[in-house]
Amino acid sequence: MPNQKPSLKRRTFLSAGLAAAAGGAAISCGGGGTGEGWRFFTAEEARTVDAICERIIPADRDPGAHAAGVVNYIDIQLAKRFKKHQAAYRKGVAGVDAVSRARFGKRFAELPPDQQTQALTEVGAKSGAFFNLVLNHAMQGFYGDPRHGGNRNMASWRMLGLPLPPVRGRQHYDDPKAG
């Protein structure tokens, strides 16, 4: 018996370690991930959508869609509430890159801003439904609540001058100053 114990321990540890490695590895790359931390998009798609959103809400003296992480919002929602739009994005994003290639010979994200704007205008005319979808989602991601993945550091709310959070107490029932 005494001499059996260490070997038992060793074997258990070995198997546990293997299991741990397997479990860890499984968790690290699980969840339908696409390798670069996106939930729905491929890395290329994310780059394209990020660039589209930045054209829709460009940086000026205030942050734009890229800095506000709008593409995160869209990616997160596509994996959850916007599942029904997944196909539209898959097709639409490819379409945007196709238009860019046809017109300017490069992927959308690699174009300079003015060419991006031209390409997007063309996309808007050609496939208006997809463009409007991205437009709405970009606005939600930029102007909506950061808890959904966009509007990083409340960039848009600061831009609009909303006190965050507002300073607001309330009257107390027993407050002699009330009424």
């Binding site: 054209r55 829709i56 809400i57 460009p58 000026d60 205030d62 734009g64 704007t117 437009l135 970009a138 102007y143 831009m159 609009l160 001058g161």
Partner: peptide, 16 residues
């Protein structure tokens, strides 16, 4: 315009 710098600028200036 529904998007682009003018849209953003309008929202920024008009919100309040």
């Amino acid at each position: 315009p529904q998007w682009g710098p003018e849209h953003k600028n309008f929202v920024r200036n008009a919100y309040r």
